[in-house]
Write a protein that binds this DNA or RNA. Structure first.
Lengths: 333, 333
DNA sequence: GAAACCAATGCAACCGGTTGCAAAAATCCG
DNA sequence: CGGATTTTTGCAACCGGTTGCATTGGTTTC
């Protein structure tokens, strides 16, 4: 039923090759045949089958977009940007939701079956091994929001979480907080580990500071709220650096829910700067992750990979910046 | 470089057909050859090329997932569910972000080029014509979160927005509100129109009620906040039915930002029940849209379509329910 | 043991395109 | 105008699979 190359060729009175060539960038066709073919194609409503052509060209323009972050509101922005940027380059995102049930190997196999030109792993919690498996199967891959490494074994784009930890620490110190808390995300997540490292590194060498640590079970509102509720049972710190924004919002909810004020009784600084953080009834002071740059760079990198497969793995890391809003007390001047 | 059918056939010492058949459900192969083939395939790390096989079978297992709602947090949940459910059925979502720049016709053409087995249009703001174009191109299509219609021209799954409007109205009446406001989403969106219809229908026949109406420019936090700020310049109503949850949260932000209390001074009821609505520092009374059912049903319908293409278009609409939280005053007993 | 049957197999054509190559057509040039 | 050059064109093979059909081989039945 669908109209094929052959139909167009017959209608236009030319060979199949001629038709193929009129739809191929840079192929040699005379103006006259091109016109005939285009007319016939338009009349029949023909458009070439991308899958069939991929068979010979070896390019599908399909990009696997793999993520396990379908609950963090930040990732809606992430998906929005990825799809836009990929589309702009004529690439198509094949979305894979990596849940607890999905087997990592099966995902690799799946994406190979669809001959994706490349894969973007968008996740702050996945281990580098996941992306590495693609690399070893010679599928161009980029790990976005992955962990910084001096000489990464696989392309990785993200932020320097250790430095973010330091920034958070300096920010709290500048505001005169003395009893300071680190409320991390899941204990085993590399982002948690790195942020903690930078955070405590700075605080330890600062005199007169008392640091406490705790960890939420997930990067989620509920986990943040639960953990903060827990902390409030004892003597809370004066300010907390929370694992990320959604965790921070959970913590804020717990604090105000207990009748305490922010930043009067407890200060909070988050990380991400997701859209919601600027909402006036949240108004979260946080550290902005430049997701636009991360995503731009990821797409660029995956494209570079399939132009030059032997390209050595590269790490690209972007600086973050403090976004001052209302959940920390002001710097005393 | 990648290993193909032929390689496996040679290694196993059988014909290509034999290899193909061992990987085809229900094909006739003896246990002996199957064993040989599987051994060879495992050693070579072979897995069949889904795209090549689609050429003859006519099935790609690719589903176009088209949306223009990449800013409404509800849609993160929507994408999560869609991808999960599709994956469970062995289908692959090809994600299309329909922005202002993307041409609807180009999207149709694109998805045809990739021979998608079906298309799901997930959008509460797109016109039925968009989905209809796929239908006319004989591509199985379902419009999720679309507008109710007695005899739809295209498959549509969603909620009865008129009835939701009525529910909201009855809920406000039951709580003794007299001066009641409708704060809709974009004036031209069908969801806005329908909700308004049901809402005013009930309020008009109730004695002693004063209804006012206004419209936000988008289903977004900022638009909701701006519109409520606007309303608060004059004499606000006692309670508002807002276009959706994110709009409601914007409105809440404006109200509390002005030093007014919720529900003491102004009541708010939203629609959607997105995850955030239950967060304790938002705690929004709202109308739950059963997105799980909508998505289940959409997937089921699109699958049914490609098993039976001549299936007449069907509309499936689900009931919503009030979720009582803290932004309306209690029913007086 | 032969006839009848059924499952398993391989051949070859096909799905909808692309592309190297040689022949044909158009253009250039003296 | 004729030969040399360049451009355009069609043929046929190929991409990686699937499948109808005829053939083969193994079982069953009498």
């Amino acid at each position: 039923m669908p109209v094929t190359l052959k139909d167009v060729a017959k209608k236009a009175g030319v060979s199949r090759s001629a038709v193929s060539r009129t739809f191929t960038e840079g192929a040699s066709v005379s103006a006259k045949t091109r016109r005939k073919v285009e007319k016939a194609a338009a009349e029949l409503g023909y458009s070439p089958n991308a899958l069939a052509s991929s068979l010979t060209t070896g390019r599908t323009k399909l990009i696997g977009l793999v993520s396990n972050n379908f609950h963090n509101p930040l990732f809606l922005e992430v998906f929005d940007l990825f799809t836009r940027l990929l589309q702009e380059r004529g690439l198509r995102p094949l979305l894979v939701n990596l849940t607890d049930q999905t087997d990592p190997d099966a995902t690799l196999q799946l994406l190979r079956q669809y001959s994706v030109d490349g894969v973007i792993v968008a996740s702050s919690t996945l281990s580098p091994e996941f992306a590495l498996a693609f690399q070893e199967a010679r599928v161009p891959v980029v790990h976005s929001f992955g962990r910084i490494a001096a000489s990464p074994r696989v392309n990785v784009v993200g932020i320097d979480n250790v430095e973010c930890g330091r920034m958070a620490a300096r920010t709290l110190i500048a505001r005169g907080y003395k009893r300071i808390g680190f409320m991390g995300g899941p204990r085993e997540a590399s982002s948690t580990i790195d942020r903690r490292t930078g955070f405590t590194e700075v605080l330890k060498v600062t005199p007169g500071i008392n640091v406490t640590e705790s960890f939420a079970t997930a990067y989620s509102f509920d986990a943040g709220r639960a953990e903060m509720l827990n902390l409030l049972k004892g003597e809370p710190a004066e300010a907390y650096f929370c694992g990320d924004d959604v965790l921070s919002i959970g913590a804020l909810s717990a604090i105000t829910g207990k009748g305490l004020s922010v930043p009067g009784d407890v200060g909070v600084i988050g990380l991400n700067d997701m859209d919601m953080a600027r909402w006036e009834n949240i108004n979260l002071t946080t550290i902005r992750q430049p997701i636009r740059q991360i995503i731009d760079s990821s797409v660029e990198l995956v494209v570079a990979m399939f132009d030059k497969p032997e390209r050595p793995p590269e790490g690209r890391f972007f600086a973050c910046e403090i976004v001052e809003r209302g959940t920390l007390r002001p710097v005393k001047s």
